[in-house]
Amino acid sequence: MKRNILIAVVTAAALVGGGTATALAVAGDDDDSTSVTRTDDDRDDRGEDRSDDRDGDDDDGAVLAAAPGGVTAAEAITAALEHTPGTAVSAELDDGSWEVDVLAEGDTWHTVRIAPDSGKVLGAQKDDEDDAAEVRAALKGASVTAEDAAKAAAAKGTVVSVDLDDDGGDKGWEAETRASGGDARDWNVDPKTASVTPDRDDD
């Protein structure tokens, strides 16, 4: 009975668009052969895919900036209010900086950008918003500020955003945290007691 045995492994190096290609020929009992070609580009793509899986969504770079030793959400709010006095309504890590929305006197809106590594004010701009009345109504009787809400939510993970929910009947603060593993969670912070509960809409 004739048997075909793998007698050679041929490796050829060829220049393919600046990378190398490796060809592997394998012979079986039925003389069929399988050829597999891998390029450096293929390996690079796989590496990029793994890197993307580790990175998660686009906010992770910003999340790292808020890790211990960086500027927390509460600290960013404090810095923003020192620059632009008023009522902080939201704070969010966005495009490499904290963006804090402040409702100032005269019902004018301002967005103050804070460096996540130093706490310095990077800039501020006046915004054209017309929902000041709704926001003030939502905050009526509230004793918990955005800064307080950020501090309370920090017990659940690294706070990457805090925002006033002024819609519907459940008015209060909403916060998003990231755990050390990168998992995101949404929380509700009571505007009177600062108690933190999981967001019912959080998947």
Rank of each mutant, 00 (worst) to 15 (best):
A124L: 00
V10A: 13
D94I: 01
D202L: 08
A62M: 00
S180T: 15
P191E: 05
G56M: 08
V71D: 05
P85G: 09
T111D: 12
A25T: 10
L81N: 02
A146F: 10
S35C: 05
G69R: 09
T37F: 14
K2F: 01
A153V: 06
D165K: 08
T177C: 03
G182C: 09
M1L: 07
D59N: 11
V189L: 07
D190I: 08
A80L: 01
V102Q: 01
W109S: 06
S51H: 14
D131I: 03
T158F: 09
D165H: 09
A73N: 01
A23L: 14
D95V: 12
L81V: 07
L139F: 09
L81P: 04
E92V: 10
D44T: 06
G182R: 04
A23G: 10
A76T: 11
A133Q: 11
S51D: 14
R136H: 02
R46K: 14
R136S: 05
E174K: 13
R46W: 09
T108S: 12
L93Q: 07
P116L: 03
I77R: 01
L6F: 03
G123H: 08
I5P: 00
A23R: 11
I114G: 01
A12S: 15
A155M: 05
V112I: 12
R46N: 10
G181E: 08
W187G: 04
G169I: 14
D148I: 05
E174Y: 04
V121P: 01
G70Y: 00
R136M: 02
V121Y: 03
A62V: 02
T197W: 03
T108R: 13
A65M: 12
W98G: 03
E105L: 08
A115N: 08
T158N: 06
A12T: 15
A80E: 02
S35E: 12
T72I: 05
G19P: 01
A21V: 14
A13Q: 13
I7V: 13
T87W: 01
M1T: 04
D101C: 01
R185E: 12
V196H: 12
T197M: 04
P116H: 00
V26T: 15
A146C: 12
G157K: 07
D40C: 14
V100E: 01
D57Y: 07
